[in-house]
Design a protein around this nucleic acid. Structure first.
Lengths: 157, 157
DNA sequence: AACTGGTCCTTGATTGGTCAAGCAAATACT
DNA sequence: AGTATTTGCTTGACCAATCAAGGACCAGTT
């Protein structure tokens, strides 16, 4: 990064340029609009929804903090704070981890599960309207692969 | 949104599901990694870079606050704060607008322009490495079109 | 058994954004 | 002309994230 090769410094082609600008737009706008849709509808911000969703898919509906943080692409401290918010709403509870007393499990409560079931239609509709709709006719599997690579934040600088 | 039609509630196909998960990842991870790349390299966060870049492309290197905010996908108050940060670094100055004394122009200074020239290789390299690289062989123009649609945040709820 | 060092999570301080309220200038109304 | 409304931007209060430091616990060494 500090010494980019000559090759990476080729200027962008017009198509690349257009894509990069569109990416800028999407990166800024999409999270906010999807979040706004969901908050408006059921008072569940996207971050909290994501946490509940990951918990609901985990065995025994419980996950260690660092696992959950990774699944939500959140720092550990950010995750702590999110879980605290969810805990005060009764949607999640924390239990000491049995095999390692340093650790905590975040556990989805029944109320949390109910809230999730109540929220997912909003989320699904938002995602369709704001995102999927615009990719009809594209090769979704291939796109998903490219996205995953781009998201795989190799910190190998 | 509050009353999604039955049609939008079809569950996601596996491909859609994969794409949506990948999107979540990209939305969270990409802005942070690109920002981190740039900060690490030249101490210019992505938001500030974007503001300078838009100013540099504007006629006379100056733009009204609300125009700049729109171009940066930022709220007006967020823009005010960004410009203040840039102003204290001497990269931008503010001038009252002549034809409307309520308004302000943000004007790119020579120092700001120099800083931008110093930063763009980092930015370009980051964007290539983190993003474009993973879409080689794709129809970039078509993708850009889809992205722009998705980013065009119709608030028409 | 007592250190040493590493791991898991939380806490404190800071940052960069939002929305709502405020102020000053412009415009519209009568 | 004088008042009311709207517009353009800033400010204040807040919020959700970050990083860095700290506390509790585990595991390895001697």
């Amino acid at each position: 990064m500090s010494n980019p090769s000559a090759e990476t410094l080729q200027p962008l082609t017009p198509d690349e340029e257009a894509l990069v600008r569109a990416l800028g737009q999407v990166m800024y706008v999409l999270p906010r609009t999807i979040d706004a849709d969901m908050v408006g509808d059921r008072q569940l911000p996207l971050t909290e929804y994501t946490a509940l969703m990951n918990l609901s898919e985990a065995p025994d509906r419980r996950l260690r903090m660092h696992e959950l943080a990774a699944l939500c692409y959140l720092s550990l401290s950010g995750m702590t704070r999110t879980i605290i918010r969810l805990e005060t709403q009764g949607l999640v509870k924390r239990e000491r981890c049995e095999e390692d007393a340093r650790g905590w499990n975040a556990v989805l409560t029944d109320a949390g599960f109910a809230r999730l079931e109540e929220s997912w239609p909003s989320h699904l509709a938002a995602v369709r309207r704001r995102f999927l709709q615009h990719f009809e006719g594209h090769d979704l599997a291939r796109l998903a692969r490219a996205f995953r690579q781009a998201g795989a934040a190799e910190t190998t600088d």
